[in-house]
């Protein structure tokens, strides 16, 4: 299929004798927004990190466009250069922001273009200012991360990832570390990215947001995809008992 952005098949990952992912098959179409939900420890972060090979799988294949990596077949693992090139085409946003504290907001956003894309400084700066503007932070360009609120940090982190002009964005609980009143500003940025047609895989506990913004919801439990379908259908009328149990627990928690 020509409109496939990324496809993984038979993906497996173990940490020691803890098997975290058991044969995951997942396809994300170009422009699609997929929300990945599931209990804590179910392997959501690990799966997301396998999509940009920040975690190297033990088995299965990861295919993105022309590039295809096979794992566990006795082939040599991809070299650091190949991995870096691959990762440069996806953006990742972390729960803890992971901004570079020794760089200003602007320098954080310029870092990828300068170091990885070897862009000239004036272009990199113009691009970074444009992206900070896009996430509503042009006035914070010269601030160090320690002077920013959590919501502002996360928006800088999104701008930093976008500066690589990625084909796909990965979000790992981007709002879980935020005070409740700051969640909205970050979700707003994510929503407008989705509306622009960005391909996104979002690990989230914001079920309402997933229902609203995602095209598809994938429910993961114990390293297995239990349910995968259109967002509203999975959330409103889940087919599997496990999904229903997880979502109902979730509603209770929200209301309680």
């Amino acid at each position: 299929m020509s409109d496939t952005m990324i496809e993984v098949a038979g993906l497996q990952k173990r940490f020691g004798d803890n098997t975290v992912l058991r044969s995951i098959d997942l396809r994300v179409a170009r422009g699609e927004v997929v929300a990945l939900i599931g209990p804590s420890g179910s392997g959501k972060s690990t799966l997301l990190r396998c999509l940009n090979l920040l975690v190297v799988p033990d088995g299965g294949t990861v295919r993105m466009g022309e590039r295809r990596f096979d794992f566990g077949g006795g082939d040599a693992l991809p070299g650091t250069g190949a991995l870096a090139k691959f990762r440069a085409t996806t953006g990742m946003v972390f729960q803890q922001f992971n901004l570079f504290p020794h760089r200003t907001a602007l320098q954080n956003v310029m870092e990828g273009p300068l170091t990885v894309r070897r862009m000239a400084k004036p272009q990199a700066e113009a691009l970074a200012r444009e992206l900070l503007d896009k996430v509503g932070l042009s006035d914070k360009a010269e601030q160090y991360p320690s002077r920013l609120s959590g919501g502002q940090k996360q928006r800088v982190a999104i701008a930093r990832a976008l500066a690589m002009q990625p084909e796909m964005m990965l979000f790992d609980e981007a709002t879980s570390a935020l005070d409740p009143e700051l969640v909205g500003e970050v979700l707003g940025v994510m929503q407008s990215l989705a509306a622009e047609g960005m391909t996104m895989v979002i690990v989230t506990h914001e079920i309402a947001f997933a229902r609203e913004v995602a095209d598809r919801v994938v429910f993961l439990r114990d390293g297995v995809i239990v349910e995968d379908g259109p967002a509203r259908q999975v959330i409103d009328t889940p087919r599997q008992d496990a999904t229903r149990a997880f979502l109902s627990h979730f509603h209770r928690q929200r209301e309680g």
Partner: peptide, 23 residues
Amino acid sequence: IEAGQSEAALALGMTPNQAMRRI
């Protein structure tokens, strides 16, 4: 230095050497 720092650098597409040197 927290692991998240080099993870963020690697996620941008830096090589491990670049992440060490720059971040």
